[in-house]
């Protein structure tokens, strides 16, 4: 058995060697409800081993936020908001809850084909909800995502419908829009920018059904 110190050493060594997949390469888009069947059909043709049919999922996500007062005087913001997402599968039993931290997204310049953001996720038990609440986190929002996921090599493609939570019952939900969210993502160690090119090529193949792009949330915020 190795000592805890050894474990820490090996973790830091792993971080140094850059083998921990903590960067998410992401492209997003949307498709209207009436065309989603066509998109699914195309994805079935493009992706790996869908002989068993597309894999469906039904997840519930809660976003927690933690406000940390900034002690450094130089920063303009008095509070920094730190958000964490907890996600659980509703359709598959005995799966762990997933705690996920998503960092600030980097859009990069024109030459970078995808959004890159740091992403750290870990499996945890259901007590994470209480734990986060005890820690001082507040529920920012929650939603239910239901849809299909596909795999093409290292790429993961999810086509999901987002539902608003209605009350406490998971059955009484209503869709927030008339369209599906399409996400193409890869989790990779930092510095592996070659995958972005693969993603761009794959996204090209889904045009014009769905335009997978780098979405700038700040700009979206201005529109609304």
């Amino acid at each position: 058995m190795s000592l805890p110190g050894n474990a820490m050493d090996s973790l830091s060594a792993a971080l140094k060697c850059n083998i921990i997949p903590n960067q998410e390469y992401l492209l997003q888009g949307s498709v209207l409800d009436q065309y989603v069947e066509v998109l699914l059909h195309r994805l079935r043709g493009l992706c790996d081993n869908v002989d068993s049919g597309p894999e469906s999922f039904h997840d519930h996500e809660i976003c927690f936020s933690l406000r940390i007062p900034n002690t450094a005087a130089s920063t303009p913001m008095p509070m920094s908001i730190f958000s964490l997402r907890v996600r659980r599968a509703l359709d598959v039993s005995d799966t762990p809850y997933q705690l996920r931290y998503i960092g600030q997204q980097e859009l990069g310049d024109k030459n970078r084909p995808t959004v890159v953001r740091s992403s750290i996720d870990m499996a945890c038990s259901s007590t994470i909800l209480e734990f986060l609440t005890e820690l001082g986190c507040r529920i920012e929002f929650e939603y239910i995502a239901r849809g299909y996921m596909f795999r093409k090599g290292r790429m993961k493609i999810t086509v999901s419908k987002i539902f608003k939570m209605g009350g406490n019952k998971p059955e009484s939900v209503e869709p927030i829009s008339q369209s599906y969210l399409v996400e193409l993502s890869v989790l990779a160690p930092s510095g592996q920018d070659a995958i972005g090119e693969d993603m761009r090529i794959f996204a090209e193949q889904l045009r014009p059904l769905v335009q997978l792009e780098k979405i700038d949330y700040k700009r979206l915020g201005n529109i609304m």
Partner: peptide
Amino acid sequence: HPFPHPATGPLGPSKKRMLAGP
């Protein structure tokens, strides 16, 4: 490879390994 549940999980590790932590 098995698909992760919830869907945001990483591709690759088996369900058993995902449960190893919790």
